[in-house]
Amino acid sequence: MSRFITGPFRNALTLLVGLLVLWQALYWVVGDVALRSPLQTAAFMGRFMTSPQFLPHLAETGRAFGLALVLAVAIGLSIGFSLGLNRFMSDVFEPVLVAVYSIPKITLYPILLLAFGLGISAKVAFGAIHGIIPIALFTMAAVRSVRKVYLKTGRVLRLPPTEAILRIVLPAAMPEIFAGLRIGFSLTLIGTLLGEMFASQRGLGFLLMNAIGLHNVDLIMGLTVLLAGFAGVASAVLLSLNKRLQART
């Protein structure tokens, strides 16, 4: 048990130290023109995150991401369940979902902008599209692989369909569904940020693009590290939850 805790923890720590050393070395090579050292970045972010101009942008991105995630989970799960419970429907739609999964979705963003206008709703829609497909694909596969005996037992006990889904399919497919939700979480975040970077008036992605125009290297470094760090930590937490969920079944 102790190895289980120290092993991954030690690895993550080594990795973190390694990345910091690499960053510092890169800074020494490139210099002040294009990079800042880890310490400078941390000091700058400390100042910037307490300044009044940071919070509205963070709130905007947070709200867009939150809404997109709620939509992605709701729509992804409903698509996944309705396709997963019907063999023929999933045969019809799975290749379409896989094809959409692999295309550069950014090309669709101008269409969303024209449809929703330049505001939070286009960003939310774009983030949600990124998240819906993996959640739907994983849920579909998970629901399809639930053992038939369970479903038969439910039918024998005359559970109504909603009860059967809530009490049998959902718990049985949970670990795999959670894996989909984890990937959906990351992709929704990526989609939301991508939307903000391409065309937006507010939010962290906008701030990042704006910083190029101003050649504000401090801000670029700080935001990049903040976003990558948040995504990395969130994903690591979800991954460990996922592993625990899988170990339970």
Binding site: A34, I183, S186, M197, I220, A228, A231, L239
Partner: peptide
């Protein structure tokens, strides 16, 4: 490797343009 694809790689693009 496990968390790599959760990181918004495009966030590094501005930095790369500067570099």
């Amino acid at each position: 490797f496990a968390t790599y694809y959760a990181i918004p790689v495009f966030a590094f693009y501005p930095l790369l343009i500067v570099l």
